[in-house]
Design a protein around this nucleic acid. Structure first.
Length: 370
RNA sequence: GUGGGUGUAGUCAAGGGGUUAAGACACAGGAUUGUGAUUCCUGCAUGCGUGGGUUCAAAUCCCAUCACCCACC
């Protein structure tokens, strides 16, 4: 069966909503943060650890798994879940973002994207059909259509042509889909142009996807602009389907997204900054490499109950980073992913009790940086 | 004691008469949003062992001196 969104409660002050997403591999509580595991692994974390911190669904990536190890191999392994030992839901991104982020390595046409592999330079092609074929083979629970994520800034004309092609690709993805248990989500584009977002949403809604994503945001525009786009784009999406804001994961953007009615978020932010020495804490960010933590024997976050904070001091974590010890990357990643998952849990609780705005205020009274 | 060599930042160093003394590591900050694990950006020597001298000009040439290294006594 396809995923099914169940709306439990709406916030009385904002567009925020509490819900459940029913999948073949369990129920996901929304709003939710989805950790990113591009190459069939959330970097540094085992599936057991992800379960420990209550990760309910993770992301993986079509483009990366296609190039290495190849979707054929993963299919032989019994699918992505079995391959990576993760039995909860997986959402696979289509490679659309890579088409954007690869920049000079690619060439776009109506047929699809051709590019040189970042691994060995070989010429590769990703078409809507291919993106679906790969995701069918991976057997992820939620698949994404191949889209083009236009850069920012981009002219109206460029964005319009791009979103129309993305819509044509979306149709081709639906036609190519052969996995009845895999839910294919559409992606609304349109850049920072209101009428183009409307055009994109209208056309995609006609295709009746089981879920809708908003793409083309957090690509360099200001946060204010992103919030403005969300303000008018989210209401274009159906109430009985999940809404997924792609690539967003800083705490302020999560709160704003929830407030505007988003149900799902994914972002490399917590894992990436964790590996580079920055932690998100109740009291803001902590750059563990700073000299001021040299003799700081408190945990990263005095109000955090995660494994890292229960057992290790900032002085120790700093030492691990200064000495380039791998455990440092793991402990920081663990804390950051826990922090966002826990924050989303708190957000859901505040929605249950209908005090979302109060919780948001409370959160940012302590968390002074983004 | 004799001969030779080397002294440039916390470390390894480039520069062998001519503007503000390369670079790397370390250190100190910052960045990171549908992944880049070991990434990117910024800062960091008014001074070249010390003291004299030559010269318009010395890290660079000369003398002395000190330290360290190698070889031989």
């Amino acid at each position: 069966m396809l995923v099914k969104y169940e709306l439990l409660k709406e916030c009385s002050d904002t567009k925020a909503r509490l819900g459940k997403l029913h999948t073949n591999r369990g129920v996901i509580n929304t709003p939710i943060f989805m950790p990113v595991g591009t190459q069939a692994t959330v970097k540094t974390m085992t599936p057991e650890e992800l379960k420990e911190i209550n990760a309910e669904i993770i992301l993986s990536n079509t483009y990366h798994l296609f190039l290495r190890p190849g979707h054929g191999l993963i299919e032989k392994a019994g699918g992505l879940h079995k391959f990576m030992n993760w039995d909860r839901p997986i959402l696979t991104d289509s490679g659309g973002f890579q088409v954007f982020s690869l920049g000079k390595l690619r060439k776009l046409s109506e047929e699809g994207a051709t590019f040189n592999s970042h691994i060995d330079g070989s010429k590769q092609e990703l078409t809507p059909e291919k993106a679906v074929e790969i995701q069918n083979a991976l057997d992820s629970d939620i698949a994404m259509v191949l889209d083009e994520c236009p850069p920012y800034p981009a002219s109206r004309e460029y964005v319009q042509n791009s979103l129309q092609r993305t819509t044509r690709w979306a149709k081709r993805c639906i036609e190519a889909n052969k996995n009845p248990n895999q839910s294919l989500f559409g992606i609304v584009q349109g850049g920072m142009y209101r009428d183009l977002r409307e055009e994109s949403a209208k056309e995609l809604l006609e295709l009746d996807f089981p879920g809708y994503a908003i793409g083309g945001l957090s690509v360099g525009e200001t946060k204010e602009l992103m919030y403005e786009v969300l303000e008018y784009t989210v209401p274009l999406l159906p109430k009985d389907k999940p809404r997924y804001l792609m690539g967003v994961g800083s705490p302020d953007a999560l709160f704003e997204g929830v407030e505007k009615g988003i149900d799902m978020f994914d972002c490399v932010h917590p894992t990436r900054i964790g590996r580079n020495g920055t932690a998100m804490t109740t009291f803001g960010t902590v750059n563990i490499k700073n000299a001021k933590y040299k003799e700081d024997f408190d945990p990263l976050d005095l109000e955090c109950s995660c494994y890292t904070c229960k057992n290790y001091t900032k002085a120790y974590l700093r030492h691990l980073f200064k000495a380039s010890e791998i455990l440092g990357l793991r402990l920081m990643t663990y804390h950051n992913v826990h922090f966002l998952i826990n924050t989303m849990k708190n957000i859901r609780e505040s929605l249950t009790e209908d005090r979302f705005l109060a919780y948001k205020k409370e959160f940012f009274e302590k968390y002074d940086r983004t």
